[in-house]
Structure formats: C-alpha cells, structure tokens
C-alpha cells in the first residue's frame, strides 16, 4: 500500500497527526532522560583526569550535537520549502529554530561551566568556540528575519535563503577541532573509529542524546501546531475545529 506522503505536506492533514505524536515523543524524551541522567550522574565512574567535572558532557555533548544537527534539519526543511513551495516546510523550519538556538545557548554555557574547572578559563576565542557562537547568531538572525515580514510566505522564503547561506558554518564547527589547533578536544564519538570513552559513560551520553532528540521533535511538533493555527486561522477547517 502506497502512503501518500504529500498529503501530510498540507498543514491541515499534518495538524492532527502532529497532535497525536507530541505526547509520544514527550514520553520518550522523559523515558530516555531519566535513565540517562541516573547513569550519567550516579552510575558512570569518575574520570581518571577530570574527576567529577567531566559529567557535564551528559548535557554539553548532546546539546552541541543538537545545535548543529537542528540547524541542518532546519535548513533542509527551509530549502525544501523554497524548491517545492510547500507551506508546511517553512512552518517546520520556524518551529525548529528556537529549539536549535536554545541548544546552542546550552552548549555554550555548559561549555563555559566545564571550561573553567578543566581548562582554567570560561572562554577562549578558538575556532570551535567562535564558530559555535556564530551559529547562535545565525539562529537569532533567522528568527529575527522571519519576524520582520508581515507576509508569512515571504518570511518563509527569505528565511530559507538565509538558512541555506548559513549552513556553510556547520561543517566548519564540526571539523574545526581537526583543522585547527584548538584548545577544545576532539570528538569523543565518531563514525570512523571506536568511541574513546568508557561504556557506561557512552551509554549515558547516548541516552541523553536520544532524549534531546525526542525532546526536540516533541517541541517542534507542538510549536508547529501553534504556527499552523496562527497562520491558517482564517481557513474554514480551523474555524470548524475551533467550533466557531
């Protein structure tokens, strides 16, 4: 049986589907976060060099991953909207941006809190930290640009161009630790080699990353529902379901 995926491209069809999915993803986020936090903060062993302060990676690393990944997802949705002219794509991009900005902010702050006890400084202007800061500015610019247009369709298309323009930054952030001598350490988990951390630590970190994923999906879906209602408030189906 073929599923008509394009049917879900219409906000009207997507609205109830998203509504059904939100509680599930919210539940999964909690279901992953609780064991993740327990493993990370109570079970995982103390680090040989850093002692207890390394435990911030259970927040920091998932947040940093999400900050980059959500940008790509956002730019992907935005680009899709630009090419296919589907209404839902722009709304999805709008819904993802605040979550991405939040994770970027969390990654920067948790990084600062980690840097002080380990490196001995809150902040250095190395390539990794600087490019992550730029990512935050890109998110804020995207949100501001979208907010500056009265016509949502114009906002979607202008935002999409900016999002694609800024996407160049993501690989720079990711590879900065390999390309330059940075104070920031390299990646602890990568596709090309075995992870460089103890199994419990890795399990806790991956659980937290999954929780961050599920949280992002739940929040993005909930937010996209609000955006759909706001933008389509004059449409018959919204009025009918609102009972007016």
């Amino acid at each position: 049986m073929a599923i008509d995926w394009f049917r879900f491209g219409s906000p009207q069809a997507f609205f109830p589907v998203a509504g059904k999915m939100v509680p599930w993803f919210a539940f999964l986020a909690v279901a992953f976060a609780l064991p993740g936090l327990y493993l990370g903060f109570f079970v995982a062993p103390t680090d040989a060099t850093q002692g207890e302060s390394y435990r911030i990676i259970f927040i920091h690393v998932p947040a940093a991953w999400m900050s980059m990944f959500l940008y790509l997802v956002m730019a992907g949705w935005a680009g899709l909207g630009l090419v296919l002219n589907t209404r839902l794509s722009g709304m999805m991009a709008s819904a993802i941006a605040p979550t991405g900005a939040m994770f970027t902010f969390v990654a920067l702050w948790s990084g600062a809190l980690w840097g002080k006890p380990t490196w001995g400084t809150w902040w250095v202007w190395d390539a990794r930290l600087t490019s992550e800061l730029i990512l935050l500015f890109l998110y804020l610019g995207f949100i501001a640009l979208k907010a500056a247009f009265a016509d949502p369709q114009r906002a979607d298309r202008a935002g999409a161009i900016l999002a694609l323009l800024g996407a160049v930054n993501v690989p720079i952030i990711y590879f900065s630790v390999q390309w330059w001598n940075t104070l920031h350490q390299g990646a602890s988990v990568s596709l090309t080699r075995a992870p460089s951390m103890a199994a419990t630590m890795l399990a806790a970190m991956l659980l937290m990353a999954l929780a961050a994923w599920m949280y992002s999906i739940a929040v993005a879906l909930a937010r996209v529902r609000s955006i759909i209602l706001e933008r389509e408030r004059d449409m018959a189906w919204v009025r009918m379901s609102a009972g007016t």
């Binding site: 730029i134 500015f137 890109l138 804020l140 610019g141 501001a144 640009l145 500056a148 161009i161």
Partner: peptide, 26 residues
C-alpha cells in the same frame, strides 16, 4: 548584496541587516 536583498521590505531593515550580516562577516 545577499543581505540587502533579503531585508527588502522587512520591518527595521537597517538593524536587521547588521544582525544577519555581521556573523557572516566574521
């Protein structure tokens, strides 16, 4: 030029332009 074209017709185009462009100029 990309930034200037993006903010055409936007509210508060001048300040917005700075917000969009300065990160790209880094």
């Amino acid at each position: 030029a990309a930034g200037a074209a993006l903010v055409l017709g936007a509210r508060g185009a001048g300040v917005l332009l700075g917000l969009l462009l300065l990160p790209l100029y880094v």
